[in-house]
Simulated scan of single mutants.
Amino acid sequence: MSTATIPQSVPDQPKAGNAFLTLNNVTKIYPTASGPNVVIKDINLTVREGEFICVIGHSGCGKSTLLNTISGFATPDQGEVLLRGKKVTQPGPDRMVVFQNYALLPWLTAFENVYIAVDSVHPRKLEAEKRAIARDNLAMVGLADAMDKKPPQLSGGMKQRVAIARALAIQPEVLILDEPFGALDAITKEELQEELLKIWQEHRCTVLMITHDIDEALFLADRLVMMTNGPAAGIGEILDISFPRPRDRAQIMEDPYYYDLRNHALDFLYNRFAHDEDAA
């Protein structure tokens, strides 16, 4: 059995001069019929520019609520989210979200779904330039030959490619992914993970991604943020994932250290913070 040290940190505090995206004591409370529901409590996290962060935890631990406060869809009841030192108070094109259910307009083609985002954010750009941006981003995700198809004509993987192209087409500073590959089959999922890493390596926008898949997180992320259970969920641990980039999946999975990390994350989720159904 390996005895390698697992690099980890407790929920971190902002570091002067190193704060691109900062969450300071973020707490979100929703009213319910039985009283206030504290979903997340006292979240502290500092993200470096260009970093790839994965967030993992059981259902109901507030992962989506956490990312909603970063995207601006939800306002913290306590604490604040800062992007480049400016407080986040509403959604904006500097933070784009890709959802698990694609969120495409079914009556528009793939090209039109991307174009409408570009046109909305950059209405003053020349028409030819906006159309070129839409085409280039669809080509980047491998859909050059499918841009005239509508969502009902596309597979799940192709729909998610359109959603990623749409998000990247407006060049956000932060790309927020809410379990984007959760509904896909294993082969398509791995293909899109590889494509996402190649795109990220090229553009190096900052990525925050929710996942339920430990192997996915270990392959993609620089750090893995592990959430405690709700209510009043927080950050339990943050694992540093130090495999060199660009990453080779087969090579990583041959490294014994991969399994040290994997077992540590499994122990966190299914022993230290198990749900009742996990224990059963």
Rank of each mutant, 00 (worst) to 15 (best):
T206E: 02
Y257L: 09
Y102G: 00
F73H: 12
G157A: 06
A139D: 13
D42A: 04
Q90E: 15
D260P: 08
E112L: 05
V121Q: 02
A19T: 13
A186I: 12
Q8E: 13
D94S: 13
K198C: 08
W107T: 13
K125V: 03
M147N: 07
H122F: 15
P123E: 01
G35K: 04
I56P: 02
A117G: 11
N113Q: 04
V114F: 10
F99A: 01
N68P: 10
A33D: 14
E277S: 14
R249N: 01
E179M: 06
T22Q: 13
L266G: 11
V47Y: 05
Q13N: 13
W200G: 08
D185K: 09
S2M: 07
K87V: 12
E51M: 13
W107G: 05
T65F: 09
A163L: 03
E49R: 15
A279S: 09
N44E: 04
T228H: 05
I53D: 02
A221S: 13
Y30N: 10
L261R: 10
Q90A: 15
R223C: 04
L184A: 01
V39F: 00
H275W: 12
S59R: 07
N263G: 13
I214V: 06
P180N: 00
A265M: 09
P36M: 04
P246W: 09
L239A: 12
V97C: 05
F273K: 08
R161K: 11
P180C: 01
I238C: 01
M209K: 04
A221C: 06
F52V: 01
K130S: 04
I252W: 04
G230I: 04
P123F: 01
T69C: 15
E179W: 09
D240C: 03
P244Q: 07
E194A: 15
T109V: 08
W200F: 12
I40L: 03
D267I: 05
L126F: 10
L66S: 03
E129H: 14
A16C: 09
V38S: 02
G156P: 05
H264I: 05
V38E: 05
L197T: 10
F243N: 08
D278V: 11
I116W: 07
N18G: 11
E49P: 08
Q8H: 14
L21I: 10
M1R: 11
N263R: 14
E112V: 10
Y258A: 01
P14Y: 11
L105D: 06
L224P: 01
E112T: 08
T69N: 13
R48F: 10
T228F: 05
A139I: 05
L45H: 07
S34V: 10
I214P: 02
E129A: 12
T89R: 14
K159V: 00
Y115W: 14
I214W: 09
E195T: 13
V26P: 05
P14C: 11
S2N: 14
